[in-house]
Amino acid sequence: MKNIVVRNTIQTPIYQQIYDQISSQIMNGDLEADQMLPSIRTAAKELRVSVITIKKTWELLEEQGLIYTVQGKGSYVRGYTKDDLDELKLEKIKDSLKAVIESLKSYNVSKEKMIEIISSIYDAL
């Protein structure tokens, strides 16, 4: 497992930070199907977070169908077809947009204005 960064200075809970990074690595194909994840305790030690936090992360990954666990052996990345991954990515995009739209709604921004903002930011990137 590579390139996981945990920050104590941001508001996102640590288990969520780790989940987000591993799930995007699975979706991007950086972690391959049937690749074994480190044990919960080893991951905790290496990321310097508590065992309970990693347990929660692994449970969430399993719940979301991203990994599977073989009793007494360990957890592995689930294999995906391209369609599965596209669907998962779409779900993820929807989730993050939902949060943005909700916060814009609280500023009373209209739907047309929202689309305009998104389009102008997109063009600027």
Binding site: T42, K45, V51
Partner: peptide, 11 residues
């Protein structure tokens, strides 16, 4: 603290 986490690795 790292040593602590190594010690409990064996459960």
């Amino acid at each position: 603290l790292e040593l602590f986490q190594t010690i409990i690795e064996n459960e």
